[in-house]
Amino acid sequence: MISNAISRLNDIVVGKEMEIRLCLTCLVARGHLLIEDQPGVGKTTLAHALARVLGLTYQRIQFTSDLLPADVIGVSVFDRATGGFRFHQGPVFSQLILADEVNRANPKAQSALLEAMEEGQVTADGSTYPLPMPFFVIATQNPSHQIGTFPLPESQLDRFLMRIHLGYPDAAVERELLTGRDRRDLLQELEPELDPVMLADLQKRVPAIHVSPALLDYLQALIAYSRDAPAFETGLSPRAAIGLLRAAQAWALLDGRKSVVPEDVQAVLAAVAAHRLRSVAEGGGETGSDIGEYLRQAVPVP
C-alpha cells in the first residue's frame, strides 16, 4: 500500500526515491517538511503528487513579499444576511499545503503559517478554528543567498521536522523528463492509493515501533556529539531528539520493520539534523547532507 504509493510517486518525480521516502516518512511522523532548492526542480510537482496519491485536499500558497497573514489564515467579513461577521477560511484550511517560496514573504506572514503548523489550529478575531486532520505543510525555500528573501530564523527552522534537497536530476532522468509526457497530464491521471483514515492509522502506529536500549544509546550519542563537537555552533535540541526518534520510527514502519535499527536513524539523520545545526566552518559552505554525513561518521554504532 505504501510501496504502491511510492512507486506511483516515482513515476511522476523520477529518480528521487530517497526524497520521496523522506517526504512520506515526515508525513507519517506528523512533521512538516521544508524543501530547499532552486526553482524548477520539481518541488511543486512533488507536493501536488503527494496530495493526489494520499488523497488529501491540497492548497498552494505562493508566498510573496506583500503577503498578509489574512491571506494565509483567512479573514472575517461582514455578512449582510446574518448581520454579523463570518470567518472566511484561508488557504491554510487544507490537509496538505504547499507554502511556496516561504522565504520570500515577510516575517509576519511567515509566522502566521508557522503558528498554524505548531498549534494545529488558527485563531482569528478571538475565535479558534481547528485545522483539518491530517495537516501537513510542505514549505519550499529558495537558497537564502538569493535576492529578496527573508531567511527563516533558527527557531522557525526547528519547527520543520525535516529539510530536504531535491537537486538536479541526473542525465538519464533528465532525458526521460525531456522525452516523456508532460508531468501535469500525469498528475491529472494519478489515482489515490491511500485515504486520510489510512494515513491516520499509519501515524498512530509510529510510536509503537520498538526502540531498544541499544538504539537509544546510539541516538543519544548522536545528540550528545552534536552538542559537544567543536564543529557545530549549537547542538541538537531535545525537540530535535524527539523528532529524530519519531522520524526513525516512521522510516522503520515504511520499511516494514517492527523495530528501529541504526540504519533507520542514519537514513533520516541528515534530513532531521542538518537544518538545526550550523557548522562553525567559515562561510557555512557545507550543504545539509555534508553536516549529516559528518555527524553520522563521527559517532560509532554501539
Binding site: P230, E293, Y294
Partner: peptide, 13 residues
C-alpha cells in the same frame, strides 16, 4: 562527504 568536512574531521582527530 565534502572535502572540507573530511579535512575538519581528520584535523580534529
Amino acid at each position: 562527504m565534502s572535502a572540507t568536512a573530511a579535512l575538519s574531521t581528520v584535523k580534529e582527530q
